[in-house]
């Protein structure tokens, strides 16, 4: 059985035209699945719906989202709170913005752990430091005592991934986790995500517009265009033998190191 099944999911904002239209896909345990497509194609709406955190006015009007045999859409808000952060965690594009600027990382991290586990402060702290170490942050104690503005973009992103992974969620959702970063830092984050899967068996859904990153990390790729999933297949199918013209164009459009040059 798949870990996550999205079946014929349709999402609308204020009952307008669907932002996600009849989308279905499966995610197996231990897989990395990427959703790619242009901005406005509904990628982010799709994964926010899985987390049950659609922006105001957004509603799943049809379909099912099944995690481990339970339909998430049938859960009450209270039940969903227990799922969020424990079974499903999310990393945002700019972790810095999702953190409280006037509280230290330690303060926020411990609060996040306490929400889901009954540990004392010391145990929480040790757990947090352990997670930060796994993310290859060289001086976790300094990171813990820093305010978000004292950390670089790459460090914040790794703190975000560490926080998301602390409760060992069944499913990690990553919304453009590398987009705001420099190429060198992006490579570090990609490395951490890959290791999460290879070493700790995490299941990850990655939303990205960077085809290169999607191609490197993913087992399966879903291509979205104007609220529809136009193609879903294994990485090799999508990259090397796409069936849809749109997928072909999208891959064609990505600048490649050995590719054609416009300038003479």
């Amino acid at each position: 059985m798949s870990l996550l099944e999205v079946r014929h999911c349709t999402i609308r904002y204020q009952n307008g035209a669907p932002a996600v239209d009849d989308v279905s896909f499966n995610v197996e345990k231990g897989q990395i699945v990427s959703l790619v497509g242009e901005s406005g194609s509904g990628k982010t709406t799709m994964i926010r719906a899985i987390l049950g955190l659609l922006p105001p006015g957004g509603k799943v009007s049809d379909g099912e989202i099944i995690l481990d045999g339970h339909d998430l859409l049938k859960l009450s808000e209270h039940e969903m709170e227990a799922v969020r952060g424990k079974d499903i965690a999310m990393i945002f594009q700019d972790v810095g913005l999702s953190m409280d600027p006037v509280r230290t990382v330690k303060n926020q991290y411990i609060e996040a752990i306490k929400t889901h586990e009954s540990l004392n402060r010391k145990e929480c702290y040790d757990k947090a430091v352990d997670m930060l170490k796994r993310m290859h942050l060289t001086d976790p104690n300094r990171v813990m005592n820093s305010y978000p503005f004292e950390l670089s973009g790459g460090m914040k992103q790794r703190v975000g991934i560490a926080m998301g992974m602390t409760a060992q969620p069944k499913l990690l959702l990553a919304d453009e986790p590398t987009s705001a970063l420099d190429v060198t830092i992006q490579a570090q984050v990609v490395y951490e995500l890959k290791e999460l899967r290879d070493k700790y068996g995490a299941t990850i859904i990655l939303v990205t517009h960077n085809m290169g990153v999607a191609s490197y990390l993913s087992d399966c790729i879903g291509v979205m265009k104007m609220s529809k999933m136009v193609e879903f297949g294994t990485r090799d199918e999508i990259v090397f033998s796409p069936r849809m013209e749109y997928t072909r164009d999208l891959i064609e459009a990505v600048p490649k190191m050995g590719g054609a040059r416009f300038a003479k």
């Binding site: 190429v183 060198t184 490579a187 290169g212 191609s215 490197y216 090397f240 990505v254 490649k256 190191m257």
Partner: peptide, 10 residues
């Protein structure tokens, strides 16, 4: 820098 570039056909 070049090593950090992820090519689609990587």
């Amino acid at each position: 820098l070049l090593g950090s570039v992820f090519d689609v056909y990587c």
